[in-house]
């Protein structure tokens, strides 16, 4: 925020204050009409018509505004849920296109939060973010996010998330985990004896 921004906001307050006091100038005579008059005015007109005191708060059936309140609360909660869903969907916007040749590696104990443009090998570490290419998970790796392709190598893997098409899943191992969505293929294997290639490039094993 540059220096002029707070000044602009301060001017905003100044304008609002001026508007409020203009309203007040209008409000005071209006208020006088309902009895807020001076004693001298009162003496000059000793018996003005007494305005009828009427309080809808006390007269109306209390269950009606209560029911309206409950309905409004339900609508508010629905709107909040809808907003949360929209926010969640917006967070899963398509990741950046693949353009990076280098394969990134998340090492043991490392936690990385953020997107990976390209392929990544998560070797015992944690990646929280989206991967535009292939994510290879080995050695108790954790991946939270979305990837185009996921290859999981190891004994214990689970799938927690949405996979669009069942034929994209190739499960070999007993238990594997994907945390999030997989757009393309998911391969889960206890071990991979050969190599994993993506677009002709070797991703696994690492050199």
């Amino acid at each position: 925020m540059n220096e002029c921004a707070p000044r602009l906001l301060a001017r905003c307050l100044l304008t609002a204050m001026a508007a409020a006091w203009v309203l007040l100038l209008g409000a005071s005579p209006a208020a006088a009409g309902c009895g807020s008059i001076t004693y001298e005015q009162r003496q000059a007109d000793p018996a003005p018509a007494e305005p009828e005191k009427k309080f809808p708060a006390l007269n109306c059936d209390q269950s009606v505004p209560a029911a309206a309140a409950a309905l409004a609360c339900a609508l508010g909660l629905t709107a909040t849920g809808f907003y949360a869903w929209r926010l969640h969907s917006a967070g899963a916007a398509p990741v950046a296109p693949v353009g990076q040749a280098k394969t990134e590696v998340v090492g043991p104990g490392e936690v990385r939060v953020g997107d990976v443009d390209g392929d990544v090998v998560i070797r015992g570490g944690t990646l929280v973010g989206q991967v535009s290419g292939t994510a290879v998970m080995v050695d108790n790796a954790t991946f939270i996010g979305k990837a185009q392709y996921v290859v999981q190598i190891g004994y214990r893997n689970d799938v927690v998330g949405d996979i669009a098409e069942g034929e994209n899943v190739v499960q070999v191992g007993r238990r594997n985990t994907v945390l999030g969505d997989v757009a393309g293929k998911l391969v889960q294997a206890r071990s991979v004896m050969g190599r994993i290639l993506t677009k002709g490039r070797k991703v696994w094993p690492l050199d």
Partner: peptide
């Protein structure tokens, strides 16, 4: 989104 993914995971 990431937090919800972690929650679901």
């Amino acid at each position: 989104r990431l937090k919800v993914d972690a929650l679901r995971a």
